[in-house]
Write a protein that binds this DNA or RNA. Structure first.
Lengths: 148, 148
DNA sequence: TCTTAGTGCTTGCAAAATGCAAGCAAATAT
DNA sequence: ATATTTGCTTGCATTTTGCAAGCACTAAGA
């Protein structure tokens, strides 16, 4: 077993739900991978590598394995290309959407260098509607992926 | 200047609001300090050290200085005890509440070992009301702190 | 006034995580 | 048969974290 995976076998720091959550995705990369799948339609290792934040290959491989072990992501062989894998969100992963949306909203409000794009503007005006639309879509995707 | 503060002078990885936010509080400790102030009424260095997650003293000092530099926290000398400091949330810090609440809600749903306590149960039933009540209270606290 | 305790740190060092470049193996494409 | 795509692993240097100890300032007690 990878050394980097060891910590996920160990006892939690506390039984606080915030602390337990941060032990899973409290780092600078995990939620960016989730963002790429959730909001940008990315599904593969090579697509995640292309993001402008430039994650290192070993870190990406590690985060994908952790998120899969935590049952936030599911890894499946691509139907028509055996050398390709598709990563998709499980229902547990889909439920991270409100967190991602709130982080985006806060970031857009307080980082002047982050222009609000279409989604950001819609969130500012009608956050609840955006979340429920995305939840519907993502849950449909998750059901579809679980059939394969 | 502290070496650990250097990164906050450097350019962001990207202009994505999610990425920029994670560069500020995307780690395993920052949001726990925010939680302690926001939901547990803690205000001092020694109170933060007492939390069950047992943050190291140097990490706590560093996170407090980063959060202060980011204008998420404000540090003030205690009115009646010159050897004591009070850390409080700025309006920018108060606006992290929805993120903290969503993380708590997700954690309570998916970590069986995290019992939903009073606040967790109220969030499950009436998230919007809980958020707006806390926002009111925290904004009042922030205004009060800014007068001193 | 000397001592003790409380508060908020800093420092040094070991361990762990991260970042970077290179390499590699299986599956396709040419 | 050869080259390319895809998804990694490995080795090594750098950075961050964790732990224990120490320290400066304030306040309180003997």
């Amino acid at each position: 077993m990878q050394v980097l995976l060891k910590k996920y076998m160990e006892k939690n720091r506390s039984d606080c739900p915030i602390s337990c959550s941060l032990e899973v995705f409290g780092d600078k990369w995990s939620l960016l991978i989730i963002r790429d799948i959730m909001l940008r339609g990315k599904v593969s290792y090579s697509e995640f590598l292309e993001s402008e934040e430039k994650i290192a290959t070993n870190i990406l491989a590690n985060r994908l394995s952790v998120l899969e072990a935590e049952q936030i992501l599911k890894k499946q062989v691509s139907p028509h290309n055996k050398s390709k894998y598709c990563y998709s969100l499980t229902p547990k992963g889909v439920d991270l959407l409100p967190i991602v949306i709130e982080i985006m909203d806060w970031g857009a409000k307080y980082h002047v260098q982050c222009p609000r794009r279409e989604l950001g503007k819609r969130i500012k005006k009608e956050k609840a509607a955006v979340i429920s639309e995305y939840l519907d879509k993502l849950h449909r995707d998750a059901r579809h992926a679980s059939k394969q």
